[in-house]
Amino acid sequence: MEVRTIKVFTTVDNINLHTQVVDMSMTYGQQFGPTYLDGADVTKIKPHNSHEGKTFYVLPNDDTLRVEAFEYYHTTDPSFLGRYMSALNHTKKWKYPQVNGLTSIKWADNNCYLATALLTLQQIELKFNPPALQDAYYRARAGEAANFCALILAYCNKTVGELGDVRETMSYLFQHANLDSCKRVLNVVCKTCGQQQTTLKGVEAVMYMGTLSYEQFKKGVQIPCTCGKQATKYLVQQESPFVMMSAPPAQYELKHGTFTCASEYTGNYQCGHYKHITSKETLYCIDGALLTKSSEYKGPITDVFYKENSYTTTIK
């Protein structure tokens, strides 16, 4: 009895394709271990004539594949690729409408935090270190965002349907971005203890939790000093293409032309909904596939993004 075979390709990165001759009487799992086709788990399936010449994702289970996976995804987590594939199996079914010149995501599976993050990423200057993220990001900007969303979920250790947080998501993504040249110098002034300067680099240099107003941050924000008295913390120097200011959701007025974009969060910790506000020729609110415009805006804002380049204080 002759062994019926077909020729397929296996890959971990969709760049390096490895030619395989597979036995049609055995499952993919018996031949390769966990195997995925377009995100779908085909591990328990036997090869079919229609699979001839198709590319299958496999887990990096030998040295060659491990090197290829690390170079593309910059992670050695053995569960990463499987999590990416199972997320992709959902995100490829989502709709990605162009809204006001940006790629958004039609609401499904509690994905409003991903839509808000995706919209924000198209408006701030950011370059990702893992080629996987950078490639998928370019495709997302062009309207094909399924891979990018699935990668975000995998890097953030999230599953489809789980509630997510924009600030946490951005923080994970910033860790995989090139923020080497970003720098922030802060000064804390206390009447009792004097003053202390701190220099922050990388992710810490672009994120701040405690106030939404970048102007206020430049002037000074009140913080408790270690001595128990009130101290003032203010920005001395900022070198970065953008800054992200966050605070627990509270009524906040966004003035046209003073910011790049913002995240609105309605609801409580267990259950809520994100919308995205962007400042173009007027203010726009993007909620999944829905767009509304207004000249002014007041609502429960939790993150505001500002364009920056270089700032030095005039406070002496």
Rank of each mutant, 00 (worst) to 15 (best):
G210I: 00
R139D: 11
F259I: 00
S79F: 08
E296V: 14
N16E: 06
K183R: 13
C193A: 03
N110H: 04
L151W: 02
M207L: 07
N268S: 13
L133E: 02
T198V: 14
L17I: 07
V22Q: 06
A115G: 06
G299I: 02
E253Q: 09
P130W: 02
Q196S: 13
T169F: 02
K158V: 02
D303I: 03
L121I: 12
F174L: 11
D23F: 11
T5S: 13
K218C: 07
N129G: 09
M245S: 00
T75R: 08
A87F: 03
C149I: 09
K293W: 10
M245A: 02
Q270T: 10
P97S: 09
E168D: 04
Q31A: 14
M244K: 06
E125S: 09
T199Y: 07
V12I: 11
L126C: 10
E204P: 12
D23V: 14
S79W: 08
V99A: 08
N268H: 14
M170H: 05
P78T: 09
S171W: 15
I6G: 06
N129M: 07
T64H: 09
L17K: 11
K92Y: 06
F305I: 11
G272Y: 01
I301K: 00
Y234R: 10
G101T: 05
Y57C: 09
T313Y: 15
D77P: 04
Y72L: 08
T159K: 15
G194L: 02
D180A: 09
A132E: 01
T27Q: 14
D165M: 07
T116K: 01
I277P: 00
G228H: 01
N178Y: 06
T266Y: 08
D109P: 02
G164V: 05
Y284K: 01
F259T: 02
G161A: 06
H256E: 12
A87E: 07
R184C: 05
S79L: 13
T199D: 05
Q195F: 12
Y137H: 07
K92G: 06
D62C: 14
T11M: 06
E215F: 03
R184V: 02
Q98V: 14
R139W: 10
V189K: 11
L17Q: 14
A69V: 08
H176K: 08
N129H: 13
Y138V: 14
L179K: 08
T232I: 15
V304R: 01
C227I: 01
L200D: 10
D135K: 10
I152A: 09
H176A: 05
D38N: 11
N110Y: 00
L151I: 02
K298G: 07
Q31C: 12
H18T: 08
K44I: 15
F80N: 04
Y28K: 05
E125R: 07
Y137P: 03
T226Y: 11
R83V: 05
T211F: 06
K307W: 04
G82F: 13
S86C: 15
D287N: 03
Q30G: 12
T314W: 13
C182V: 05
D62T: 12
T282M: 12
F259A: 00
M245G: 00
S240Y: 02
D109G: 04
V67I: 14
L81E: 07
L200K: 11
V189A: 11
Y297N: 03
S246Y: 06
P224G: 08
Y96P: 05
E71D: 14
Y113M: 04
C227G: 00
D165L: 03
Y208S: 14
E125Q: 10
A154H: 02
I15P: 06
L65N: 08
K280N: 15
T27G: 08
Y172E: 07
A177S: 09
Q238I: 00
H256F: 10
L81P: 08
L163F: 13
A142D: 14
M209Q: 15
E308Y: 04
L151Q: 02
L59W: 09
R4W: 12
L121S: 07
T76K: 09
G194Q: 02
G267T: 11
L133C: 07
C193L: 02
A40T: 12
K158Y: 02
R184I: 04
L65Y: 09
K307A: 13
V160N: 03
E296D: 15
P224M: 15
A136F: 08
A205C: 01
T211W: 01
A69M: 15
D135Y: 08
V243R: 01
V236G: 01
Y297W: 12
Q197G: 05
Y155I: 04
K219S: 11
H90I: 12
V185C: 04
S171N: 15
Q270E: 12
S171K: 14
Y306I: 02
S310W: 09
Q230L: 14
T169M: 07
N110Q: 01
L153H: 03
I45P: 06
S279D: 14
M85I: 10
S310I: 12
H176D: 03
L59T: 13
K275C: 10
I223G: 14
G161K: 05
Q123I: 05
T116L: 06
I277C: 00
P78C: 10
L151F: 03
R167D: 02
A231L: 02
A69E: 07
N309L: 09
A146M: 06
A205G: 01
G299T: 00
N100C: 13
R83Q: 08
